[in-house]
């Protein structure tokens, strides 16, 4: 018999307390225990990005995160980016540029875009950064495509995703 472990996390601005099996991933804890179904399960093995959420401000894969290891963490999904009920520049840009079709990968794309824009603002390089020694990142289309490549989209709305991220980053 498995013993459960108490866990307290903040999800989209709300504190949630629960007991979890040590085996439970953050994704399953959110979806199955807390009924937070915004992050999606596309592969469950870190190979698609559909489960992307922000944990303590950084984009991570909730399917490869053990819930027990994130006690006290601040978790934000695509539905909690604007906790006051307002809109967020990234979701606005996704809507304005039709950056999705079926919508299944979209919450992960949105969280990933928020993280990617933040990383670029902090000068973090990517494989598309021409000058690794430089301190500034110019978030052009090639940079965005590389930084968003951890989020697969089988509908392949990639062109519009890049445009949306470009637009959101320029705000």
């Amino acid at each position: 018999m498995t013993t459960t472990i108490p866990l307290s996390i903040t999800v989209d601005g709300e504190q949630r307390d629960l007991d979890v099996d040590p085996r439970t991933t953050l994704l399953d804890a959110l979806r199955e225990r807390l009924a937070v179904t915004t992050p999606k399960k596309g592969c469950d093995h870190g190979q698609c990005g559909a489960c992307t959420v922000l944990v303590d401000g950084r984009r991570v894969l909730s399917c490869l995160t053990l819930a027990v290891a994130k006690d006290g963490a601040d978790v934000v999904t695509a539905n909690g980016l604007a906790p006051d009920g307002g809109s967020h520049p990234v979701t606005e840009a996704f809507l304005a540029n039709d950056a999705f079709q079926c919508g299944y990968c979209t919450p992960g794309q949105v969280c990933s875009a928020v993280g990617a824009i933040d990383e670029a603002r902090r000068g973090m390089p990517s494989a598309a950064t021409a000058d690794l020694a430089g301190d500034d990142v110019v978030l052009d289309r090639a940079e965005i495509a590389e930084r968003m490549s951890g989020n697969l989209c089988r509908c392949a709305a990639y062109v519009n995703i890049v445009t949306a991220v470009e637009e959101a980053a320029s705000r």
Binding site: G46, G49, R58, R59, V60, L61, L64, S112, G115, G150
Partner: peptide, 9 residues
Amino acid sequence: GASGQLRNM
């Protein structure tokens, strides 16, 4: 290697 999310983890 990997993706932005995985490199953060």
